[in-house]
Design a protein around this nucleic acid. Structure first.
Lengths: 182, 182
DNA sequence: TATGTTACCGAACACCTTGTATGGTTTCAT
DNA sequence: ATGAAACCATACAAGGTGTTCGGTAACATA
């Protein structure tokens, strides 16, 4: 990709994230974005059809770096590779606590519902590989898609609670909370 | 309240709910609402500052009828009164399955996130009175606000799953799922 | 029945936001 | 050096927002 294109795209993404941490998505105009990104109006529309598409692409890039839904080289298959030492969920909590990819900022913002929604969606594939966590529990008899959904739900909601209450617990402690709540 | 006022207000609310079940909130204009409600533009703005406020008031009325957050005579304290026979949660599932107050329609619509958000919020006070459900479980040691949040979360997420998969289970069965998932 | 008040309506408005089109400039690759 | 591609500012039409205005219908009260 052309360097100019990359720079514009990056500038727009960064400006957009900065605005999303400050203001509700519905109250962000294209004029705001291009001013913050310091690019022309035409440039914006040559990259993105609308700001809704921009949001979608942002979430795509964001969660591609956290999870490994895409199998191409941009995505480092981080989560699945690092499974050995830490456990997947602790690893996720650590990532978030470090504010990697500004995810924490976005999950703490007025727009958190949008990003928690995407988060849970991406978590579903991961949950499928973690069904063993419910071994021996009563829920084991319930339908598989219910159990997958349950794991993703509990994780997302514990994470939401953790963020809302200001990350008072360590990643290790909150992982413990998650397992107890499951 | 003046009969004319009541009629206009009702017409606007009903039109708004009808539109919310069809279209995303962001894509609903004031012009759409007043056309569907068959009232004048001025009338709309004499009742509600913006459509955002209309949404807020709608949710207020909606969940006032389902839960009993308000203690005045409009609200019948339904949930707490009927505690005897059924159990609160089964009662809630039944209410929703019957599409009382069009809540099911709204929870099934494109705008479900908005209403599930309000739903969980209102559920928190109820959850506080149901902390005994976690007796004997490992989570009991965790902070109270975590446990309250956990009960409300699991209920909301089970409900979401139930609605998303098309209410295939009976209210009794899904209540069982909820208790097992807790 | 007469009277004042209140809610309603349509039309018009100034303003803002959106998405596109135009013409000219800079940056890139070759 | 040259053509292509990305950039910029400006302008535009279309549509949405929230307000104002003058006139009409419904109400409550005497």
């Amino acid at each position: 990709m052309d360097r100019r294109q990359r720079k514009s795209r990056e500038a727009i993404f960064n400006a957009f994230v900065r605005l999303l941490t400050k203001r509700d998505f519905a109250r962000i105009t294209v004029a705001d974005i291009i001013e913050e990104a310091d690019v022309g109006r035409t440039t914006f529309y040559s990259h993105f059809e609308t700001k809704e598409f921009l949001l979608k692409e942002l979430c795509g890039e964001l969660f591609c770096h956290i999870f490994d839904t895409e199998k191409d080289e941009h995505c480092h298959r981080h989560i699945f590779r690092c499974e050995g030492d830490d456990g997947v969920f602790l690893h996720l909590f650590k990532h978030i606590a470090h504010n990697d990819n500004n995810l924490l900022s976005l999950l703490s913002s007025e727009n958190n519902e949008i990003f928690f929604g995407y988060f849970k969606e991406n978590l579903l594939t991961l949950s499928k590989s973690q069904l063993d966590l419910l071994k021996g529990r009563e829920v084991e008899k319930l339908p598989e898609n219910f159990r997958i959904n349950h794991i993703a739900s509990v994780f997302t909601e514990v994470l939401k609670w953790w963020v809302d209450t200001g990350l008072k617990e360590s990643p290790e402690t909150i992982t413990g909370y998650f397992y107890m709540a499951l």
